[in-house]
Design a protein around this nucleic acid. Sequence first.
DNA 1: CTGAAAGCGCTAACAC
DNA 2: GTGTTAGCGCTTTCAG
Lengths: 330, 330
Amino acid sequence: MSTIKDVAKLSGISRSTVSRVINNHPYVNEEKRIRVKAAMKELGYVPNSSAQRLRGSKTKTIAVLISRIVNPFFSGLVDAMDSVATEAGFQLILCNTRGSKEREMTYLNLLRTKQVDGVVFASIENNWDDIKPYLAYGPIVLCNEYTDQTDIPSFRINHFQASYEATLHFIKQGKTRIGLCRGDETIGSNLGSDREKGFLKALQDHQLTFNEQWLFRNATNFNDGRHVFQKVERMSERPDAIFTGSDEVATGIISESRNSSIHVPNDLSVIGFDDQQIADVITPGLTTIRQPIQKMGEQTMQHMIHILTNQTSLIGHTELLKTELIVRGT
Amino acid sequence: MSTIKDVAKLSGISRSTVSRVINNHPYVNEEKRIRVKAAMKELGYVPNSSAQRLRGSKTKTIAVLISRIVNPFFSGLVDAMDSVATEAGFQLILCNTRGSKEREMTYLNLLRTKQVDGVVFASIENNWDDIKPYLAYGPIVLCNEYTDQTDIPSFRINHFQASYEATLHFIKQGKTRIGLCRGDETIGSNLGSDREKGFLKALQDHQLTFNEQWLFRNATNFNDGRHVFQKVERMSERPDAIFTGSDEVATGIISESRNSSIHVPNDLSVIGFDDQQIADVITPGLTTIRQPIQKMGEQTMQHMIHILTNQTSLIGHTELLKTELIVRGT
DNA sequence: CTGAAAGCGCTAACAC
DNA sequence: GTGTTAGCGCTTTCAG
């Protein structure tokens, strides 16, 4: 493994000038620049990034925290972020927390140990109070998630409103016994509770009462959806519509309904969230709320890179992206 | 940001001993160990990983190359690898090549610049000749992909055989005009060509001829599947069955067929690859070849970590995992 | 068991 | 424009 010293020796030029060539400094004699480049090529020299990092304390690496990469919502987000990051010369460390608070803190420590320049939270497990101290070590940007305990930048949709609209759609269709699936109750996040509030507000605005039995907690994936349906099946008083927090859950419900006499959408309407590929392909087509996933990921990463590049953060900058209700068969 | 020097000063103990405490060396006086730990805590000290890397030339980081994270096959693979890596204290850098040779080489350079300890190829774009030289900088392990140009470890299925079996299934059902979708033609990879060979061998063994028109190249995602169907629709002599390289492509074909008079599976049978969630949910259910994605990812990462930990590689070790034909409606 | 000291490879003043 | 030099923060001989 050759070092800058070897290049200097071979080319007969000092280390500092070699370094200048590496970093494209101006004011380097053209002839020497060529000699240095030739030596670098001959030795197959590449700068050692650990040394550069130690010296410059920049890693050109960003940690992206998500709960499950296999969820198309998150892989879409990561994909969008990756495009922007790559373009700007940054790498991404994949931080798949699997919903674990401990793992989230472990990843957050990458910031303290200078292994990453910044952290993007696309899912959030811990209370903000526990995360806040890490702001001292580098920028943190939120994507999708948010909390009223802080005003750091967040790129997301208005979950209250989206939820209100979905519920309203049910009501307009004459549904009166409307249920709700929500995800885990993360203390530090307002996402789930805002969705619940929007849902309840819509019911309240139309004089509908809510049966607590129709609130399904911790429903986040396909199998959870199947279990939700099984529970519904066993109920004496069943909901006639369910607003789910994700297309995966909704798909699980629809899939499981096929083994039963309860018909979707005649007996049970379903609305999903995200507008994933599957929503368009399943029969009946899944009515769902489309999130601008790509835009959300791109804007988040652009902002992070802006902070990292210009050292200035737009504190309190919250970008609210538009959602759209996609009406299909369910 | 406090350093080892600060800890040494505060505790009144030398840097070397502090370092020993950090690294859990034996032979450190218990009382001193406690004093050091107290000082570390008081200062909120964390070792700077760039310095550790520079000194020790270990990064505890592995690069995973895939072509598209939004493909459920790859996100499943990454998820499995991540579990194993995290468990062993390694991080993953996500290398989404998007099918670009250049980007693949850029990522491969992480190995040269000592930013990662090893590289896993779960997709491969360049010719092996161009990748080979990088073996000098660290271990490379293949997952899913392979090439006969090298015998480095590979964890994968037998694509020839899987393809043969799928084609045989069509033949047993009385199909005679069988088409094939394959992905990009990567020079360095045998995957696509082996699938094609298995397919052709099955036809040949049953005295069926192959119409070149029914070979669809560069079909890798949902939209490609839709285009394939559109092409089929315009043909005067249509295939009565298509073996696709992925469930995504198959889903695209089925989805597009709904706007046409060609009925799946009556007029056109389809077999997918991977057995993704969607195969079970779509109607009609998609017949497909199940790959042991999780096991493949886990074994690959276990092997990589084994190499990194024990400095020994099982050259020529190819693990062939079992596939299973899942028969559904198409 | 512990401390002093020598670097790992690189960059950035600083002087020429 | 260019070379000399002093570290960045850490680990690891090598003596004690």
